[in-house]
Each structure stands twice: as structure tokens, then as C-alpha cells.
Amino acid sequence: MRKKFGIRQILLLVLILICLIVPTFVKTPYMLGIFVTTFYIGCGTLAWSVLGSLTGEISLGHAGFMGLGAYIGALLMNNKHITPWVGMLVAFVVVGLLAACLLAPCFVLSGPYFTLVTIAFAEAFRNLFTNWDYAGKGQGILVPLKEQGMYSMRWISKVPYYYIALIMLIVFYVILRKIDRSKLGYALKTIREDEETANAVGINPFKYKFIATFISAGLIAVVGVFYANYIGYINPDIMKQSQALNYVMPAIIGGIGSITGPLLGAIILTPLSEFLSATLSHIAGGLNLVVYAVIVIAVILFRPTGIMGWFDHSKFKKKMNDRFDAIDAKLFGKRG
């Protein structure tokens, strides 16, 4: 356990500081928008990771849970004038519980069968909302920009959203790190590796899968509330299974099995897809998607464990650790 302050912590602080001052340099809404998208996709990926990476249950229904959260936030604001901040809390609890209760009977299913069930639930929700008058049917609902400010979480400028998304990302990451190193994390990882072993050391798989689903779906519902207010318009299409891939792909590319991997994947993939669509799509329609797909396929083919999976076992990591330790020793003298 490294609790001491060293070069790694300094680098992390510098990184956070850079993130904090980005809006003073980046002025165009388009560029800032890419940052915001990266951050909330990162949050979504981290939320997905609780179930996908830690527990090893691949869900393709998370867009559905995110959409539920978005609807809860938007409807509360529009019809009851309840601030989205409270909406986030409500979405976390309601969607978390709903998802956990719905998926609980399906925990006995493993692998692809569980994944299919998650798709089915998301589709069911999408159909429900497409036909539900109160939720605006297929046209969706607008979150009108009547008043700007903290209470309504609505601004014309993208800068406040930038900071909210950044803070949300940091909070999500810290939560996941905490889970990863806690009793819950060990339970989930043991279940992921082998359910029979989990039973044999005294872990009740059902109980912990329930908790994991609750946290995972709850967190992504919080992202949904943010999304509704950031975009200002939601419709049932955001619950599509293809939308769920936005959160699954970064995790797979970054490396399922760690916490940093999914985050790294989001930071790489979202700007990459934006960059490709900006540079390639006017040459030939859809070319950007082809290149994007080729990159993703290449990573999956040659680095099936993802970027972090490769990094964790590489000599490069050891070298970097040694380098950092050397700098630590020089800067702070020998300790521990």
C-alpha cells in the first residue's frame, strides 16, 4: 500500500488542474462539447463497469436505464419543478432498485443469456415510453430553457456543464476505486472469476449481484439526468441498444477488469470518433464509421484484454514504476 505523497500524486494533481483550466483556453462550443461528451460517456462507462468489469455480467441494456434516469429528471423538472439535483438522487434510487429487482430473477442466467435479457428490458422500456402520453410518446420531451442557473441545471454556455461533467467523472472514478478495493469489490471480482469458488469462500452471489446491479444502473441513471439537461431534449431513441454500446465499447477497448481501463477507453474513443467524423465524413459519407470500426476491431483482435490489460502485464509499466520510484527517492529522500 502506497499512502505517501509522490510524483504520481503530483502528476495526477497537474492533470486535474489542466482539466480545470481547459475552458479558459477552449472557447468554441464545439470543442468544449467534445470534452463534455467525453466526460459523461466516461461516467457512463464507469457505471457500466460495476456490472460489466467487476462482476463480469455484460449488460447491453444500460442505455435503457440511462434513458429512464433522463426521463425521471426531465419529467420531475417539467411537471413538478423539482431541481435535477434532487432528480439525480431520485433517479439513482428508483432506477437502481427497478433494475436490480427486474434483473434479480435473471442472475441464474450466465454469459450471453443474461446480456439478451438486458437488451429485452431496455427495449421494453423504449416501447413503453414511445407509447406513453405523459412522457411525450415517440416525440420525446423538451427540457425548456426558461431560467438559467443552478436550480434548473440549465445554461446557454457549455462551461458549467463542463465542470459538472468533470466533477461527476472524478466522483464516479473515486467511487469505483473505493468499490474495487472494498469487501464488495472482492466479492464481485470473485464472482466474476468463478461463481463456485465464490460460494466456497462464503460469498452469496445473488446478494452481491443485486448490489452491483443497483449501483451500476443507479449511477448510469444519474448520467441520464445530466444528459437530459445538457442536451435539452430526450426521446425514446436514447434507450436503444446501439446507444448502450457507447458505454460498452470504451470499457472493452480500455480493458475490462480494471477501473482505469474503461475510463481510459472513453477518453480515447470519444474524441477519436468526433475527430474522425470531423475529418473524414465529408470525403465519403460513413467513412469515419468504417475507420472507427476498423480501429476497434484491430484493438479487439490484437489486444483482447484491452489497453490496460496489456499495460498491466507489460514491461513498460514496470519501467515506468521504477522511473517514478527513482524520482520519488530523489525528491523526497528514501522512505519506507
Binding site: 469487501k183 472482492y186 466479492a187 471480482k189 470473485t190 469462500v201 462464503g202 460469498i203
Partner: peptide
Amino acid sequence: DNVVSGAIFG
């Protein structure tokens, strides 16, 4: 970590 799992839930 393999052994930690056993230790936590034992």
C-alpha cells in the same frame, strides 16, 4: 487477492 477473498468472507 485470491487469498484476500477467502480472508474477507471467512
